[in-house]
Design a protein around this nucleic acid. Structure first.
Lengths: 239, 239
DNA sequence: CGGTTGATTGAGGTTAATCAATGCCTGTGG
DNA sequence: CCACAGGCATTGATTAACCTCAATCAACCG
């Protein structure tokens, strides 16, 4: 609700609708697969608690992680408009999700322009994050990829109040980070060491600290166009 | 119109609306920049003729090409919902485009559910193509990346009737292909030679032939989920 | 005809993958 | 409480993929 409200005032009715969706939330365990790739598209989810990721398993035995989802993120709207899942989704750690159906989504669409605008904004910004990683995969070294990845997490976590003293909880294994960045787990480890020696990133088990976020931002030339989540003025008349 | 009509019957009114958009088309020259990254978002375009690509220029001097656009493709809907361009767009060869404004897009939305469904379907499928390349960038070698890239072009060109005897016109330079696949131009050249020696891809200047598309499809494990362009049943009641 | 652009080929260097060994935590069962 | 196993991270050595630089060549263009 906090996420969607940024794009237009929600009426009391809108809020009631959203709250009704949140009622039937479900606890999920670490590693649990929410759905497999190619499965039928039935539901979407909002993460209430815990981290998840979407992935593709490849013919050569490796896996590509497409996106990491944090509490408050909507999972599955990328599949909106398809009849089968383009990617699987699994939980990283324990948590809770609120599932809702295509039906309920269309209901929202019919009822509230502000919610439509909000969901469009969320969807296009998620895609922008993906595009940003495509750029990094294509043209940057392991060093910059990892730095960018962690800085992006830092920014997203800060938005939801999960950063304290420039540090945050990060439950991904180095193997999983490698699968997200197109690197081997071994090289992720080496790259972490480099970043630590440079004083840019400190990591202790599942806790990451960025001693100097500004310096890191300069290094990765962070493009915050897609983090700014306001919709352009043209939308105001529409939704 | 052909592309959008796949997702629902267009009324005579819809068609008239689309034709009116096509009236003010504009000729564009090879290499012409349609817009720069970070520019204000004012228009979208349909390509009537010629090829284009969207790109990001990076701090380290290199460029990442995000997507290649073919005749019939809509350019710029990725920026829908942002006030500034996430990527630049430039023509590869000479051609013609039909620009239309945010305003006109909203008008379409208000008038025709079938067009809304069509545009949603086009947008999500374009994103799926991007995601597919992200997977290839992260986890496949130059050999498979190039094979996949060309096979994807082959499939998309076949849809619009631009393939003849398994061959097609391909105006991209090897430098540009490298920018799309995250490779150097030199390595693209070597990889082309490998594919030619394997009998998978024959290239003569700007003409590419796939002697055995089936074999190539097996090699790249082409995922055609996102090429199937029908919207799922759930949409039928909605749009 | 000279100039330019794009493709090819070779040589050598760099990045990151792979293989393998070790260490460190954590949980488990005796 | 200790022994042990499993998962994760680290480190070293070797190999493979790809980049960069540089030279050459072919096609095109004024």
């Amino acid at each position: 609700m906090q996420g969607l409200g940024r794009h237009g005032a929600l009426t009391a009715d809108d809020k009631a609708l959203l709250l009704s969706l949140e009622l039937n939330s479900r606890r999920v365990s670490a590693g649990e697969v929410l759905w497999q790739e190619s499965a039928d598209v039935d539901i979407f989810c909002v993460i209430k608690e815990g981290w998840a990721f979407s992935y593709r398993n490849l013919g050569n035995g490796s896996m590509q992680i497409l996106k990491v989802y944090l509490p408050g993120d909507i999972i599955g709207i990328r599949d909106f408009g398809f009849s089968r899942r383009l990617a699987g989704v699994a939980m990283i750690n324990e948590g809770a999700v609120c599932p809702f159906t295509y039906q309920q989504l269309f209901e929202l669409f019919g009822r509230s322009p502000a919610l439509v605008a909000g969901i469009i904004a969320v969807a296009v910004r998620q895609q922008a994050i993906l595009t940003e990683r495509l750029v990094y995969l294509g043209r940057y070294s392991a060093h910059e990829r990892l730095a960018h990845f962690l800085y992006e997490l830092y920014m997203r976590l800060k938005r939801i109040g999960a950063v304290e003293d420039n540090g945050f909880f990060m439950p991904l294994s180095q193997e999983q980070i490698g699968d997200a960045l197109g690197l081997s787990a071994v090289h992720v480890s080496r790259t972490f060491s480099m970043l630590r020696d440079e004083g840019l990133i400190v990591r202790d088990r599942q806790h990451v600290t960025l001693p100097d976020p500004q310096a890191l931002a300069r290094l990765v030339e962070f493009n915050d166009t897609y983090i700014d989540e306001s919709l352009p003025p043209a939308f105001h008349g529409f939704a």
